[in-house]
Simulated assay, not measured.
Amino acid sequence: MPILTVPDVRQAVREHEAVLGLRVLMDLGWIVTLGDDEGHQLSLMSRDASAPVNPDVSVFVDDVDAALERARAAGVEIVHPMTREPWGVTRFFYRGHDGRVVNVGTHTAV
Protein backbone atom coordinates (compact mmCIF):
# COMPACT_ATOMS: atom_id res chain seq x y z
CA MET A 1 0.00 0.00 0.00
CA PRO A 2 1.43 3.41 -0.89
CA ILE A 3 1.97 5.94 1.90
CA LEU A 4 1.95 9.63 1.06
CA THR A 5 3.61 12.08 3.42
CA VAL A 6 1.39 15.17 3.53
CA PRO A 7 1.52 18.46 5.45
CA ASP A 8 -2.18 18.35 6.41
CA VAL A 9 -3.63 14.87 6.93
CA ARG A 10 -7.25 16.07 7.29
CA GLN A 11 -7.16 18.05 4.06
CA ALA A 12 -5.52 15.15 2.22
CA VAL A 13 -8.19 12.76 3.54
CA ARG A 14 -10.98 15.03 2.28
CA GLU A 15 -9.37 15.36 -1.14
CA HIS A 16 -8.69 11.66 -1.66
CA GLU A 17 -12.11 10.63 -0.35
CA ALA A 18 -13.73 13.01 -2.84
CA VAL A 19 -11.58 12.05 -5.83
CA LEU A 20 -11.11 8.31 -5.27
CA GLY A 21 -14.35 7.49 -3.45
CA LEU A 22 -12.44 5.76 -0.66
CA ARG A 23 -13.48 5.80 3.01
CA VAL A 24 -11.50 5.93 6.24
CA LEU A 25 -10.51 2.44 7.40
CA MET A 26 -8.06 3.49 10.14
CA ASP A 27 -7.40 6.86 11.75
CA LEU A 28 -4.58 7.26 14.27
CA GLY A 29 -4.38 11.04 13.76
CA TRP A 30 -0.84 11.05 12.36
CA ILE A 31 -1.77 8.38 9.77
CA VAL A 32 -5.08 7.67 8.07
CA THR A 33 -5.70 4.70 5.79
CA LEU A 34 -8.40 5.00 3.17
CA GLY A 35 -9.84 2.05 1.30
CA ASP A 36 -12.80 0.28 -0.25
CA ASP A 37 -14.41 -3.16 -0.20
CA GLU A 38 -12.24 -4.39 -3.10
CA GLY A 39 -9.00 -3.94 -1.14
CA HIS A 40 -7.75 -0.70 -2.69
CA GLN A 41 -5.89 1.26 -0.02
CA LEU A 42 -3.92 4.46 0.39
CA SER A 43 -2.34 5.83 3.57
CA LEU A 44 -1.76 9.52 4.30
CA MET A 45 0.79 10.42 6.97
CA SER A 46 2.21 13.51 8.62
CA ARG A 47 5.09 12.04 10.68
CA ASP A 48 5.50 8.42 11.76
CA ALA A 49 4.73 8.05 15.46
CA SER A 50 7.71 5.86 16.38
CA ALA A 51 10.13 5.64 13.45
CA PRO A 52 12.88 8.10 12.50
CA VAL A 53 11.68 8.31 8.87
CA ASN A 54 8.39 8.04 7.02
CA PRO A 55 8.01 4.97 4.81
CA ASP A 56 7.10 5.23 1.13
CA VAL A 57 5.15 1.99 1.05
CA SER A 58 3.80 -0.58 3.47
CA VAL A 59 3.89 -4.32 2.80
CA PHE A 60 2.32 -6.77 5.22
CA VAL A 61 3.65 -10.33 5.32
CA ASP A 62 2.75 -13.56 7.10
CA ASP A 63 6.17 -13.94 8.75
CA VAL A 64 7.78 -10.60 9.62
CA ASP A 65 10.70 -12.31 11.42
CA ALA A 66 11.64 -14.23 8.26
CA ALA A 67 11.33 -11.01 6.22
CA LEU A 68 13.76 -9.28 8.60
CA GLU A 69 16.23 -12.16 8.21
CA ARG A 70 15.97 -11.87 4.41
CA ALA A 71 16.46 -8.09 4.59
CA ARG A 72 19.62 -8.52 6.63
CA ALA A 73 20.89 -11.21 4.23
CA ALA A 74 20.22 -8.86 1.30
CA GLY A 75 22.37 -6.21 2.95
CA VAL A 76 19.74 -3.46 2.95
CA GLU A 77 19.83 -0.78 5.65
CA ILE A 78 17.39 -1.38 8.51
CA VAL A 79 16.20 2.14 9.37
CA HIS A 80 13.61 1.16 12.03
CA PRO A 81 14.18 -1.98 14.10
CA MET A 82 11.59 -4.68 14.62
CA THR A 83 9.03 -3.05 16.90
CA ARG A 84 5.76 -4.25 18.38
CA GLU A 85 3.64 -1.11 18.09
CA PRO A 86 0.79 -0.28 20.50
CA TRP A 87 -1.71 -0.07 17.62
CA GLY A 88 -1.48 -3.79 16.86
CA VAL A 89 1.32 -4.04 14.31
CA THR A 90 4.80 -5.56 14.50
CA ARG A 91 7.06 -3.98 11.91
CA PHE A 92 10.50 -2.90 10.73
CA PHE A 93 11.62 -0.52 7.98
CA TYR A 94 14.38 -0.98 5.45
CA ARG A 95 15.84 1.39 2.88
CA GLY A 96 16.35 -0.12 -0.52
CA HIS A 97 19.34 0.78 -2.66
CA ASP A 98 17.07 3.22 -4.54
CA GLY A 99 16.51 5.18 -1.31
CA ARG A 100 12.88 4.17 -0.82
CA VAL A 101 11.83 3.18 2.68
CA VAL A 102 9.65 0.08 3.01
CA ASN A 103 7.56 -0.64 6.11
CA VAL A 104 7.32 -4.43 6.50
CA GLY A 105 4.81 -5.59 9.05
CA THR A 106 2.20 -7.98 10.29
CA HIS A 107 -0.90 -7.52 12.42
CA THR A 108 -0.46 -8.55 16.05
CA ALA A 109 -2.74 -8.61 19.06
CA VAL A 110 -2.89 -5.34 20.97
Results as ranks from 00 to 15, higher is better:
V64T: 11
D65C: 06
L25M: 14
V104K: 07
T90M: 09
A73M: 05
R10I: 11
Y94W: 08
V19S: 07
D98W: 09
V53I: 12
F92R: 07
V57M: 06
D63I: 13
I3A: 00
S46Y: 05
L44M: 04
L68M: 10
D36H: 03
G96V: 05
A49N: 12
V76D: 01
D56W: 00
I31V: 15
V102N: 01
P52S: 11
D36F: 05
G99E: 12
G75Y: 02
D62H: 13
S58I: 13
T90G: 06
I31C: 08
V76W: 01
G96P: 04
G39T: 02
F93Y: 15
D27P: 01
T33D: 02
S46W: 07
L44G: 00
Q41D: 10
E38R: 13
R70K: 15
R100D: 05
W87V: 04
V61P: 01
V32R: 00
V76Y: 02
H97S: 14
N54C: 09
P52D: 12
L25S: 04
P2A: 05
V104E: 03
P7T: 12
W87D: 10
G96A: 12
M1F: 03
T90H: 13
G39V: 02
D63N: 15
A71Y: 01
V13R: 06
L28H: 12
V61Y: 09
R84V: 08
D63V: 04
E17P: 02
D8A: 04
E38P: 00
E85A: 11
G29P: 00
V101D: 03
E17Q: 15
V13L: 03
E38N: 14
F92E: 04
P55E: 08
D8H: 10
E17K: 15
L34E: 04
H107V: 09
T90A: 14
L28A: 09
V104G: 05
S58H: 14
G29F: 08
